[in-house]
Amino acid sequence: MMMKRNAEQILARIHQSCDKVSRDIQEVCPIVVTKNRTNEEIQEVYSLGFRHFAENRVEKLLERQEAFPQDDIVWHLIGPLQKRKVKQIVNRIQYFHAIDRLSIMEEIEKRLESPLKCFLEVNVSGEESKHGFTTKEVFEAFEVAKQYANIDIIGLMTMAPFDASEEEIRQYFHELKEITENIDSEKSLQLSMGMSQDYPIAIEEGAHFIRIGTAWFEEEE
């Protein structure tokens, strides 16, 4: 019951945020981040109709795929990827959210058997502990990615600092949106941003993919 109630609350908040800025709710894809959750919990979310699932580590994602072999699940890798693990995972996911350096692109391209939807990770806040391109480097990274036939850069990803204020979070997300509008792209770029604590703000600032973990599974304090 709790998970069903949580899911209903998440969908209600997505609706509210979309209505607030006159967006179509179909533009927003909620991703279920399964980090540290049991297979039973994941099965319950799946039974509620959600199909986009994510892990931030290669080993855990492969384990999840073994536990959930359903072919209607869309798998997202949302954490950093080491070169030595590229071949294990890139042909088993539909989205990779964390291209965070130029050196990883060549290895991904070399291992891909078909196009993979990818996001360039941008460290908008400038935190030293965060991965990703700076807000200046991302323009070069986007141009470099164009040479690779199977790396399909569909947008940009960022994370706000956990202790940031609402005003700061909104500023970071808004800046990422502005970057997408200034990148020389033939298509409209999408935004992967927003987690359990800040996804309503992310939606208001243009997020297309929101990466939600604890809000599915735990009671709010």
Rank of each mutant, 00 (worst) to 15 (best):
T38P: 15
F173D: 01
I108H: 04
K87L: 03
V90G: 11
G194R: 02
H15N: 11
E44A: 09
W75R: 00
S125N: 05
Q43F: 05
Q171A: 14
C118T: 12
A54Q: 00
Q16E: 10
R23S: 02
E66G: 12
M2W: 07
V138Q: 06
V86C: 07
E168G: 10
N182Q: 13
F133Q: 02
D71A: 13
S114T: 07
R101V: 09
V32L: 03
I210W: 05
D184N: 12
R211G: 09
Y199T: 00
I73N: 03
P80L: 00
Q82N: 13
S188K: 15
I212P: 08
L48T: 00
I10T: 05
L116N: 05
L77R: 07
V58P: 13
S47C: 05
S192G: 15
R5V: 07
I183K: 06
L189F: 10
E167I: 08
L191W: 11
V45I: 11
M1T: 10
E221I: 08
D71V: 03
T214A: 03
A145T: 07
I210H: 03
F96Y: 15
I14V: 15
L102N: 13
E107Y: 07
K177D: 05
H97Y: 07
K177T: 08
S114P: 03
P115D: 01
R23Y: 13
E8S: 09
L112D: 11
W216T: 00
R5Q: 13
S103Y: 14
N123E: 02
K85L: 06
S192R: 09
I203L: 12
F173Y: 09
G126W: 14
I10K: 01
E107R: 13
S188Q: 15
N91L: 04
E107I: 13
N56Q: 03
M3E: 02
L176Q: 01
T134H: 11
L77Q: 10
I183R: 05
W216E: 00
V138L: 09
E106S: 13
L120F: 08
E44L: 09
A160W: 08
A145S: 15
Y172M: 04
G49L: 00
R101L: 12
I183N: 11
A141M: 10
V28R: 01
E181A: 12
T34D: 01
K187Q: 10
E168L: 08
E204W: 14
K130L: 10
S192C: 15
G194K: 03
M3G: 00
D24H: 07
C18P: 09
V28A: 01
G126V: 08
E55A: 05
Q16D: 08
F173H: 01
V45N: 00
R51D: 02
H131P: 15
A141F: 12
E59W: 10
E27Y: 06
V122P: 08
Q16Y: 07
F139A: 04
F217D: 01
N91V: 08
F133A: 03
P115C: 05
P115R: 04
H131M: 09
H97T: 06
V124F: 11
N91K: 12
